[in-house]
Amino acid sequence: MKLTKYKIRDLIKTVDELNYIGIKDFFGININKEFMPTMAKTEGLDEKKYKLVKKNRFVYSGMQTGRDRCIRISLYMNDQPVIVSPAYTTFEIKDERIIIPEYFFMIFLTKEKDRLGWFYSDSSIRSNLDWDRFIDIDIDVPTLEIQKKYVAIYNGMLKNQKSYERGLDDLKLVYEAYIENLRKTIKSEEIGPYIEEVKGKNSDLNIRLTQGIDVNMQFIPAKREAKDKGNTHVVRNRQFAFNKVVKSNGRKLPIALREGEDCIVSSSYQVFKVVNNKLLPEYLMLWLSRSETHRYCGFNAWGSTRDTFPFEELKLLKFPIPDMMIQKSIADIYKVYKRRNEINEKLKLQIKDICPILIKGSIEEAKSIMEA
């Protein structure tokens, strides 16, 4: 047979291997089916209670499948192991003579399978896709020869993307080394005298573009449209906006520099601008984007129902401020890094979008051989 239908349960085996080797790299998976460092606080945790994830091992979470319309699953492909929460299910392919791990993963990079997971998820608040329901899903598996052909295409694209990503890491090292040297050679100053809060309201309703800011420090379409657009805050080109509520367990302050047409943001956001010609907005954004800055903001946030870091606290941040020529050279490197990072994200999306085409092609090839 060139094409065989299997239940997922017949192709995989769960592997509950605890962290007996003392790995301290805590990871999770996101809705893009990627591994990422955990956002949870890990200080004081016993890493030996966490699950070990080795190369070619899968991580699965059935939580919120219905809400996000996404099956949270990822294949770990690096040589150095990491650890994940015990709440995740970890598993491997039983027999790689039947199905290749990459081919199995490619199946779940399709919108079709995400929609199926959404359909099969329960009606609870968390909209879970329970493990027993997940492993009961049917998948069509072509011959190993056909799988290898399409996996080779996928791996080729992935290799090119990873090569591009390594170049990004090198670029990041350059500007990080540059600013670390500045911190050692130039005394840091409070940024308060260089910035000023802006309280412009959209009272004339001339601006219709409604935006928000995510934890990746970029403007995004607002999740909710403000009912009273006249009460929203205007953000103009080269002005900053931020949500003073610290996110991701105190590790992320959603803040971004506006580049492009004017927009409006919720009145809960704060907007400010640089008012001193000795500071470049782009250079300031570089410092505000650093993870250590975000950790500082989280640590010094005002504790309440929600941890907030208002403009008054932001003004107390200290950074080295060199002459404008040095600022511009560093900001230019950072700008190139950001642009290339955006390209890298687009490359990853393209690979994900091509996977359904590859899976469909492999199934159709198997069917055509059967009909011949």
Rank of each mutant, 00 (worst) to 15 (best):
A152F: 07
I83W: 04
G22F: 01
G44N: 04
M217A: 15
V271L: 05
L75F: 01
E312G: 10
F35H: 03
I99H: 02
R208P: 11
K94D: 05
L168P: 01
A331S: 11
I343F: 03
A241H: 09
D140G: 13
Y337T: 04
F58I: 07
L358R: 07
L182G: 06
E196A: 14
E371A: 13
D10A: 10
L173D: 15
I21W: 08
G117T: 08
T232Q: 12
G28F: 07
I12D: 01
D307F: 11
K227Y: 09
G62Y: 02
Y178S: 13
P86Q: 06
L279W: 07
R115S: 14
I107E: 02
K273Y: 03
I83N: 00
T293S: 14
I195R: 00
E165A: 12
I137C: 09
K172T: 05
D95Y: 01
K41N: 13
V274L: 02
E364M: 09
V215W: 04
Y194W: 06
L316W: 05
I354F: 12
A301C: 12
E365F: 03
E313M: 12
E180K: 15
L347I: 07
D95E: 04
Y283G: 01
P322R: 01
K148I: 03
V246M: 06
G117K: 00
I255M: 13
L317Q: 05
I107N: 04
I31E: 10
N249H: 08
I220W: 02
K273M: 02
R236D: 11
Y150F: 07
D214Y: 02
K352Y: 03
L158S: 11
D136T: 08
G192K: 00
S329R: 15
L45Q: 04
L347C: 06
G361F: 11
N237E: 08
K13F: 08
K244E: 10
T143H: 12
M285R: 05
V235F: 15
I369P: 09
G230P: 00
F242D: 00
K162L: 15
I264D: 00
I83M: 00
L288W: 03
F134G: 06
E259K: 13
A366W: 01
R208D: 14
T143R: 13
A87N: 10
I330G: 05
R126G: 14
F309K: 10
T14M: 13
K41H: 10
R290V: 11
K48T: 14
P37R: 01
D140V: 08
K49G: 10
K318V: 00
R251D: 07
T38Q: 06
I8N: 08
F105L: 05
K227V: 03
S85M: 05
S123Q: 07
Y88G: 05
I135F: 15
P86G: 03
R126Y: 12
